[in-house]
Every structure is written in C-alpha cells, then in structure tokens.
Amino acid sequence: MVSAALAPAALPPGMALSVERVSHGFVLQDELLPVLQDIALDIEPGEFVALLGPSGCGKSTLLRLIAGLEPPRGGRILADGLPITGPDPSRVVVFQDPTLYPWRTVWDNVALGLEARGILKSQRHRVDQALELVGLARFASALPHQLSGGMAQRAALARALVNDPRLLILDEPLGKLDSLTRLTMQGELVSLWQRAGFTALMVTHDIEEALFLATRVIVFSDRPARIVEELRVDRPYPRHRDDPELVRLRQRILERLGLGGSW
C-alpha cells in the first residue's frame, strides 16, 4: 500500500487508477445479485472523472471498491500500479451524507484522519488550513448539529482534504444540497482540484454537474452496470453552463440513457 506520507517525491500529486475487468455483486436470499459487470477503466493522474448513470446502477459500489472498503468479487483495481488491499488515507471518500461525528466539534471532525494516524500533534496547522480552505475557520468550535447542510458538507470536504489525498472519491457529495449551494460548491470543487492537483472521481446523477466539473464523463447502464459511453470534455475552466459544446454533450448523454426526447 502506498500512503501519501510515504510516497516517493517523484510521484505526481494525483493518483493513477486502473480498474481491470472488475465484477461485483451482493448475496440476497442465497442468490447473487450482480451489480458490476466487467468494468474496465483507466484514470490518469490529475484527471477529474465523473461517473454518470441511473440511480441504483452500482456506481457507488464501484467507489467503495476503489476506496478499499470491500474487495471486488472479480478482477482487480490498481492504484499507481499496486493492487488495492484496503482503505488508505491517500484515497479519501466524501459521501452524500456528511456523516460528521455529532460528539466532535467541527475542528475535531476535520482532525480525524491525522488523529487516526497519530500525527495530529505535529500537524495541527493543517486542520486550521483545511478549515480556512472551505471557509469554516469561524465555525471550528461548532458542533455538527449547529451547521447547515452546505456547511456540514464543507466540513466533510475539509476532513478529506486535510489528508492531502492523491485520489478524492466523491459519492454524490452535492446530491442533498439546495440548488444554489450546489452551484457554489461545484465552482469551489473545481478550483480545489485545480490547485491541489489530486485525481478526482465523482459519482453523480446530474448531467450538467458532470459536464461542468469533469474532464471525462463515463456513462453507466442500468444494473448490472456496464460502461456504455465515455466522453472527453475538452473545455477550459471555468466553464459556462450554456457553452454550446456542453449542451451538445448533454444531449448525447441523455440519448444514451434513453431520455433523448425529454429535453
């Protein structure tokens, strides 16, 4: 396992990821329910890849496998050429629910990763920096139940970023936010990614969001998920939502998902 702290300096800030013929499923009432089927995917260091597909198709399962929370039933996943055997702080997940620990202050929540690895004492300034980065410096001593939805998700983002991840895994992180907060945070995510240079992998069911953020959009089929389309989004940042190229790509994705006539 390559952890961020031990990685040789020569490695780029972003992680290379290769998903090799991964299949996965769950056992439900003694029957195997296939969820992922023969997924193959190569991600270059520093890419921002969006996974798009109908809900319940298995995108989030793929993220859990990449995070190392479960081993795949078939195939393998390589991070920087080495097989993933478990979770590692170089691959951090931000979930749809912020799942902050309610008994910890915002500061202590953000400090979680450093504390778990026993390096908090020497690295306390990184917690302050991460809070600064997401604009929560003034709420360091607040408790999670005092935060709004957007603030809680920002705290969850800071909790991930404080570990200097080389791969940031985003599981519909903006899915439960109101649309205005969502637009603001989309812009913030892009600039964080551009500044830090990590590889980003995001599951979303919002086509516009995928096109606004990602350098590449992967479209999944219904369960068991297969990749049905890969689109390179070759537009400079910051992007504009009414860019004709993005509008064209959106139309193509909708057609691929069988919703072509609805827009």
Partner: peptide
Amino acid sequence: NSAYYDIARTLGAKNRFLVLKV
C-alpha cells in the same frame, strides 16, 4: 451508524481507534 466506521477506515483508522474513538 456503519458509515462512521467507513469514514474512519478510509482516513487510516485501525481497530483500536474504531473501538475507542468511534
């Protein structure tokens, strides 16, 4: 909430931390 464990594990927590701190 099992998500509490998932979070801690992806951030590098070992068993001892999961028991005592989560």
